[in-house]
């Protein structure tokens, strides 16, 4: 299949369709609306279902309902909409249902604006809703990955029966790049060992997040924590660039990592030993790998479009108290010069 120029939000729907996603439930919000538009146009053409919900809460709870049947389901939103969805997400996590949620992060807090930001890091990576749960979180940095990681997200969601969030932003959603279409479309079969399908076979299956007995609820929580530990051990994904001899390592995810990569090139031209470490999974966070890097004695600079939310995770992972930070938020991208200035300060 040849490559095609396409926007990030459209690539999400391509990935979802190739991954065998059956239903899309959504509510309009800039800058994620194109995902909804594309789903409304293309899903019905191939017999998949599209429903425009009356609210964000309705959309995520439609996902809850449909995911219970073992089908692949998707929703998409942005900051304020993600806040509204949190109740549904914690129920989905508690009931251990698979689904994919795409967050095209915009600037906040409150209504904020429609510029790009990475400030949903905490509400998506740390939970956001009530209770001790984790989403799996994937952070693409290109249009190709908007498609590929959406496909991967469905696999992970079903492997662990857990919500998976694609954390992107307004730039990734709207920028146009070449997309190589997936080689194969996928028709998943339904796992009837847990799903409720309205038949005799699945009658004993129970989908719920309520357990009134304290001991049983505790046991359910332990089971969830075991699952998150397995995810930490098996699903970490990251990318590195020129870190072999690096004395300063930029740590950056999503669209910021593209900027950081250009900075690495520029710094190397000036003879500065700079590399890039890019987490692709934000939960699980590549803590072990960052710790190993820290042990080589390099310095870290976190590059992110929020007030340093990921920096906290780098500090925890590496045990380094003084991880530097170059950040920008409010809807603007980080400038190459600002990162360069910080590198020279640190070097």
């Amino acid at each position: 299949m040849p490559a095609q120029l396409i926007a990030g939000n459209s690539a999400v729907i391509i990935g979802a369709m190739y991954a065998g996603c059956d239903c899309f439930f959504g509510y309009p919000i800039t800058p994620a609306s194109e995902i909804l538009h594309e789903a409304s146009k293309y899903f019905p053409m191939v017999g998949r279902k599209f429903v425009q919900a009356e609210s964000e809460e309705a959309a995520i709870n439609m996902v809850y309902g449909a995911a219970s049947t073992g089908h692949r389901v998707l929703t998409a939103s942005s900051g304020p909409g993600m806040s509204l969805k949190q109740e549904g997400i914690t129920y989905i996590a508690g009931a251990e249902l698979p689904c994919v949620i795409v967050d095209i992060n915009r600037a906040g807090p409150g209504l904020g604006n429609i510029g790009p930001e990475q400030s949903d890091y905490n509400q998506v990576v740390k939970g956001g809703g009530n209770g001790c749960y984790n989403n799996l979180v994937l952070a693409p940095n290109s249009v190709q990955e908007m498609c590929d990681l959406t496909m991967k997200a469905f696999d992970l969601a079903f492997k662990y029966r857990n919500p998976v969030v694609i954390l992107a932003d307004g730039v990734l959603g709207h920028m146009v790049e070449a997309l190589k279409f997936p080689d194969e479309a996928y028709t998943p079969s339904i796992d009837t060992t847990w799903a409720v399908c309205g038949n005799h076979e699945t009658r004993p299956n129970l989908v719920t997040s309520i357990e009134l007995d304290f001991s049983k609820m505790e046991k359910h929580n332990f089971k969830l924590q075991d699952k998150y530990q397995k995810i930490r051990e098996n699903e970490v994904q990251f990318e590195t660039y020129m870190i072999g001899d690096a004395e300063i390592v930029l740590v950056s995810f999503g669209i910021s990592s593209r900027i950081a990569k250009s900075v690495v090139d520029a710094a190397r031209k000036e003879g500065l030993k700079v590399g890039l470490f890019r987490p692709i999974t934000l939960f699980p966070f590549p803590s072990k790998e960052l710790k190993a890097l820290a042990d080589t004695g390099c310095k870290f600079i976190s590059i992110e479009m929020n007030n340093g939310m990921m920096r906290e995770d780098i500090r925890l992972a590496t045990g380094c108290a003084n991880v530097d930070l170059v950040c920008r938020y409010g809807g603007r991208l980080i400038e190459l010069e600002d990162i360069m200035k910080k590198i020279k300060e640190v070097a």
């Binding site: 309009p28 919000i29 800039t30 609306s33 909804l36 538009h37 425009q52 009356e54």
Partner: peptide
């Protein structure tokens, strides 16, 4: 319709 977000249908 939802005009501000790009003309999606409303109730």
């Amino acid at each position: 319709a939802y005009m501000n977000t790009g003309v999606q249908r409303s109730g």
